Simulated assay, not measured.
Amino acid sequence: MEQWITETMTTLGYFGIGLLMFLENLFPPIPSELIMPLAGFTIFQKQMEFLPAILAGVVGTVLGALPWYYAGKLLGEHRLEQLADKYGKWISVSAKDIQKANNWFNRHGKKAVFFGRLVPGVRTLISIPAGINGMALFPFLLYSTIGTIIWVSLLTIAGYYLASLNKDYHLVDEYLGPVSKIVAAILVIGFILWVLRKRLRDE
């Protein structure tokens, strides 16, 4: 996986970043935690620039979210769950995953799209309930883009920082895997506390 990501980015440059991030949203097993840090490594080596690399990652991610959004909108929850049970093993998506994402969206609404973009494992799936529940395209794209900018920027900066410490790219997953989970946990806890505080104020 690492070699393929490296070769794609080396060969195609910024377009390669966008393509990889697009595919990462269609096929969850492809990890953004390896793609954007490599961009950060490449930036440190003066072979790319920050803003174009981040822009390519954001555009690829947002475009990659649309097929899942329209799948939810056109097929509906029941049909998607049937397809996930039948074919989901090829892309690591199950009917239970879709149910969980849909329940989370129903509890938290549009904000779930923003926070979902910051949580590994949820980033792709959050597009499905947005489509299932008929979320309008513009707010979906807006919340997705804002969340994606934050996530893509953090990963790119992390890769740049690791490169500045003379760390090998092959250690990216070792370093960023636990960090991304910690960040995700903090974001989820913060979001839950915000929701609880809002509910207490409304009562």
Score class of each variant (00 low, 15 high):
62 V>T: 03
24 E>S: 12
135 M>G: 09
115 F>A: 09
147 G>V: 08
192 I>H: 02
117 R>H: 12
150 I>C: 13
187 L>Y: 08
10 T>F: 09
145 T>Q: 03
23 L>E: 03
104 W>Q: 06
101 A>C: 04
170 H>Y: 10
178 P>A: 04
46 K>W: 12
21 M>V: 09
199 R>T: 05
174 E>P: 03
66 L>Q: 02
18 G>N: 03
147 G>M: 01
45 Q>D: 15
159 G>Y: 08
123 R>T: 01
38 L>I: 13
36 M>Y: 08
133 N>G: 00
43 I>Q: 11
130 A>Y: 00
112 A>G: 05
145 T>F: 05
195 V>H: 07
168 D>A: 14
99 Q>N: 15
123 R>H: 10
149 I>K: 06
80 L>P: 06
31 P>T: 05
160 Y>L: 15
202 D>L: 10
18 G>I: 04
116 G>I: 10
15 F>H: 08
201 R>Y: 11
144 S>L: 00
160 Y>A: 12
169 Y>L: 13
161 Y>I: 15
27 F>Y: 09
28 P>M: 01
172 V>M: 06
160 Y>M: 14
158 A>G: 02
92 S>T: 01
148 T>G: 00
26 L>C: 03
14 Y>H: 07
72 G>T: 07
98 I>E: 09
108 H>T: 12
60 G>R: 07
153 S>M: 13
60 G>V: 01
183 V>K: 07
88 G>Y: 05
19 L>C: 10
94 S>C: 10
195 V>Y: 06
16 G>T: 07
130 A>L: 02
19 L>S: 12
133 N>P: 04
167 K>E: 13
62 V>W: 03
53 A>N: 14
106 N>L: 11
177 G>W: 06
201 R>G: 08
26 L>M: 00
152 V>I: 15
